[in-house]
């Protein structure tokens, strides 16, 4: 299958490969896909709690070249966006940017799922933190 230059470029020089501290309160982690399906994406975001801006994004991907390129591109796009803006990233934009062939559209869907999962994880952490802080506020 022929690949677009952009896929190859991301595959050969993936951006933001790596991991952030899963336990950190300002890090959201999304893990989507399954090994038996041939794709697993782990995508992480580090959010500034004051501004809501994603300051860092990292990924690790088990999958084909299109899956790796989709993840790499997603981390690039996430950096500098607010969480709300990040929620607006659609898989179709990834398809377009990388010129993914139809059989590889699922790679972009997975990338979008990973973004949403990472944001959800981050937001859940904030809720938990808020819950914990609440009694103190009430008491004060």
């Amino acid at each position: 299958m022929p690949y677009s230059d952009k896929i190859l470029e991301h595959y050969n020089n993936p951006r933001n490969v790596g991991s952030l501290d899963v336990k950190s309160a300002d890090v959201g982690t999304g893990l989507v896909g399954a090994p038996e399906c041939g794709d697993v994406l782990k995508l992480q975001i580090k959010v500034n709690p004051v501004t809501g801006v994603i300051e860092d994004a990292r990924f690790k991907t088990f999958g084909c070249g299109s899956a790796i390129a989709s993840s790499s591109l997603a981390t690039e796009w996430l950096k500098g966006k607010t969480v709300d803006e990040a929620m607006e990233i659609k898989n179709t934009a990834i398809v377009e940017e990388l010129a993914l062939p139809p059989v590889k559209v699922h790679c972009s869907v997975l990338a979008e799922d990973a973004i949403k999962a990472a944001i959800k994880n981050y937001q859940e952490k904030q809720d938990v933190t808020a819950d914990r802080e609440e009694p103190a506020t009430v008491g004060g």
């Binding site: 993936p14 490969v17 991991s19 893990l31 989507v32 896909g33 399954a34 090994p35 038996e36 399906c37 794709d39 697993v40 994406l41 782990k42 690790k60 991907t61 088990f62 790796i68 699922h106 869907v109 997975l110 799922d113």
Partner: peptide, 24 residues
Amino acid sequence: REMSPLYEMAQAGIDLKSIEWSAH
């Protein structure tokens, strides 16, 4: 492998079979 989340988990001693994967 350096790019693989599965490798990272295995290195960390996580049993990959213990994870509930979101099959698609």
